[in-house]
Every structure is written in C-alpha cells, then in structure tokens.
C-alpha cells in the first residue's frame, strides 16, 4: 500500500518577469516504510516537494494523499494536527527555538501533543543520548555548535516516532562519524518501526543508505530508481 501519492504536483514562483518551476507536474507513489533520498542540484525542487508533502506550502495544482487523506484539501488546523502526530521535520537550517534548552526543544513537539512531563523527559533524555548530546541537555541553541544543533533538530523530529520523517539536508553539518551514527538510527527506525523517510541531500554517502533514489531537475523527477542500500 502506498503511504504517499503525489499526483501532478505543480508549484510555480514568480520572480520578476520569469516564472520559476518549483514543482512541474510531479507524480510519485511512495510505499509505507520506504527509505528514500531526493537528490538534484540546488533549486531542483527537493525542498519544495518535501514542504508540499508536509503541508507547509500550498500547491498551485495537483493532489497529495498521505495514507488516503488528501493533504492539499486540509485546513490550517487539520494540517497542524497531521504534522504534529504523523510527520517529523528536519529542516535545512536547524530551526531551534532559541529560548528553550536542547532538551526543551526536543520535548516541544511532545508537549504540544500533550505527553506527560515524565514521559517527555524520559524520551528526550534517551534520544539526546542516542544522538551524542548527553550532558548538553540544558544548553540553549546559542551554546551549541552547528553540528550539535543539527542533532537536536534530528532528535526533535524523531523523538515522538512519527509515521513519516521529511529531512532536508539532515547531515549537512555532521562529520562522517556522526553522519554514520545518524543514518544508522534512521535506518533502524525505518526497519523496526516502519517509519517512512524522505531525505533531501547532496551527500553521496547519505544517498548510499537509501533503497530508492529520486533525482530532480527544474522541478521535475528525471530519474527514480531502486537500489540496494
């Protein structure tokens, strides 16, 4: 069964007199539990596709269904609920809340979900340990390096075990060892808990972890191939 079905997605941006094609008639079917990498040059539409699937951006035309639910038809509150309970985001810029500590940032989504304080603390401490930030739980983002902030953002995205993780360059600021550790964790979540991963990346090492690679150029899918991770 397909987890995500994208039908004829179009998203255009006006820039002066010219029109930029963010997504140009994109059609995709993504099965539940997939581990997919999106690649392509800058401006090829990877981030736009992730934003559209996550309901962060409105399409000009086309349809997106996640587990049978039409994302493109949902209202603001319903979209917020979908993102809260089903989707984990890792953004290109770390996007942490500066007035909250690393642990509080990780707990934020669970807090909005209404998870009890005890459970939140247990889960956040565990995940921070797993991403190698033990002892840094009480530091604010400004007191963390770029790589450490990226790991907090990843921890926040996966701590509540969403059905779908949309990650935009999640390893951009990580060294090889941290990258390996993170991808191993992603893969484990994917295989054990059937979490679907869509990762936009330029990093060939990350692409090697994927079981399916989708190449995009100028808002179009130019290649879509399976591989052995």
């Amino acid at each position: 069964m397909s987890a995500i079905i994208c039908t004829d997605l179009c998203k255009y941006y006006q820039q002066g007199d010219s029109v930029i094609k963010g997504l140009d008639h994109v059609n995709l079917e993504i099965a539940a539990g997939s581990f997919i990498c999106l690649s392509g040059p800058s401006g090829s539409g990877k981030t736009t596709l992730l934003n559209a699937i996550g309901g962060l951006d409105r399409l000009d035309s086309g349809q997106i269904s996640i587990n049978g639910e039409r994302v493109d038809l949902l209202g603001k509150a319903a979209l917020a609920d979908l993102r809260l309970h089903s989707i984990g985001f890792v953004f290109q810029a770390y996007n942490l809340i500066p007035v909250l500590s690393a642990r509080e940032n990780v707990e934020f989504v669970m807090q909005v979900q209404g998870v009890s304080a005890t459970k939140r603390r247990q889960r956040s401490m565990k995940i921070l340990q797993e991403v190698g930030l033990e002892g840094m739980e009480d530091r604010r983002p400004a007191q963390l390096s770029g790589g450490q902030q990226q790991r907090v953002a990843v921890a926040r995205a996966i701590v509540s075990q969403p059905k779908l993780v949309l990650a935009d360059e999640p390893t951009a600021n990580l060294d090889s060892k941290s990258m390996e550790k993170l991808m191993t964790h992603f893969r484990e979540l994917n295989q054990v808990h059937q979490v679907t991963f869509m990762i936009a990346t330029h990093d060939q090492r990350v692409m090697n972890w994927a079981e399916r690679r989708i190449y995009m150029v100028d808002g179009q899918v130019t290649r879509d191939e399976m591989q052995d991770p």
Partner: peptide
Amino acid sequence: IREIGLMRALGMRPAV
C-alpha cells in the same frame, strides 16, 4: 516570524 513558522510547522495550531 521564523520561530512562529517553525512552531506552526511542528504542529502548533494557529489558535495556540
């Protein structure tokens, strides 16, 4: 604004 956008992206409803 960016932070508010982030909260929205993470699932905070507009009312919240």
